[in-house]
Amino acid sequence: MKFFDFTYLGKRPSDFGAYVHVATHDIGFPSKVKTVVTVPYSNQVYDFSTMGGVQPYNERKVTYVINVVNKYGYDQVSMHQLKTEIANWLYSSNSKKELYDDKLPDYHFLAELQEEADLKDDIRSGELTVVFTCYPFMIANKFEGDDEWDTFDFETGIAQNVNFKINGSRTINLINDSVIPVTPEITTDAPLTIQTGGNLYQVSAGVSKEIPLQTGTNRIDVTGQGNISFAWRREVI
């Protein structure tokens, strides 16, 4: 029987014993943050949630129930020793870190264990429930523009170039297939001028991260002499 684990901070539940594994997964969806105003003495409701141009979302929950079989022996002391090892691993981060779930091989979460973990145990075995608090969106493991044949997703992937040589001026079209705007990491080897979305940006040689890509196709006009590349990951619900 194949068990599906998760990886967090470089470790997996199965690293703590041959019979320690994830029994159930519950990948929750984020809820929308709604800002609504009801007109007094009326059924009219105004929704101002997207006044900033983007629908905001609350954080999401990812829950695992882990079956734990005591690898140290048949006594309560050693069972608590194993429980402490697992808890120290899961609670060791004070910020959101990458959480990789075997059932979602193309994406990862940014997660932190903030809530109290629950362990129902006896001398030999136990059931540990952990609830991760996560950034609302799943993040692709691969950067956009990575069109390696063996790992390319032919169902949802978009083949596009993200590396360009600028010799005077050039119009670039980049497709952001995320459900939200993303801000790519832009690398240039010379100062360049970038115009997109009605805004003008001056970027120096090096790495910058200040120009957002809206969802869908983005027209980017670049002028100057040099090379430019864009790096970002798809973000989906």
Rank of each mutant, 00 (worst) to 15 (best):
S93Q: 12
S95I: 02
S95F: 09
E98M: 14
E98H: 15
L99W: 08
L99M: 10
Y100L: 13
Y100F: 14
Y100V: 09
D101Q: 05
D102H: 10
D102W: 07
K103S: 14
K103V: 15
K103H: 06
L104V: 07
L104C: 06
L104P: 01
Y107G: 01
H108R: 09
F109W: 10
L110G: 05
L110P: 02
L113T: 15
L113F: 14
L113Q: 15
E115F: 06
E115A: 09
E116A: 13
E116L: 10
A117L: 10
A117E: 08
L119E: 11
L119H: 13
K120D: 13
I123F: 13
I123A: 14
R124N: 06
R124H: 02
E127R: 07
L128V: 08
L128N: 02
V131A: 04
V131R: 10
F132I: 02
F132C: 01
T133C: 08
T133P: 02
C134F: 05
Y135D: 11
Y135S: 05
F137A: 10
M138R: 11
I139H: 07
I139F: 05
A140W: 03
N141C: 02
K142A: 13
K142I: 00
F143Q: 07
G145Y: 11
G145W: 13
D146H: 06
D147R: 03
D147P: 01
E148H: 06
W149K: 06
W149P: 13
D150W: 08
T151I: 15
F152H: 04
D153E: 11
D153P: 09
D153A: 03
F154K: 04
F154G: 00
F154H: 06
F154M: 08
T156K: 12
T156F: 10
G157V: 05
Q160Y: 11
N161W: 01
V162F: 04
V162I: 15
N163W: 08
F164S: 12
F164Y: 15
F164C: 07
K165W: 08
K165A: 14
I166D: 09
I166N: 11
N167H: 00
N167Q: 07
G168R: 02
R170C: 03
R170K: 15
R170M: 13
R170G: 00
R170A: 09
I172R: 04
I172C: 10
N173K: 13
L174T: 07
I175L: 12
N176R: 00
N176H: 00
D177R: 11
D177G: 00
D177F: 00
S178W: 07
I180A: 04
P184E: 13
I186F: 04
T188I: 01
D189I: 01
L192C: 08
L192H: 04
T193W: 02
T193K: 15
I194P: 12
Q195W: 00
T196R: 05
G198S: 01
G198T: 01
N199S: 08
N199C: 01
N199T: 09
Y201G: 11
Q202V: 12
Q202C: 03
V203T: 12
A205F: 01
A205K: 05
G206Y: 06
G206N: 11
S208G: 14
K209Q: 14
E210S: 14
E210P: 00
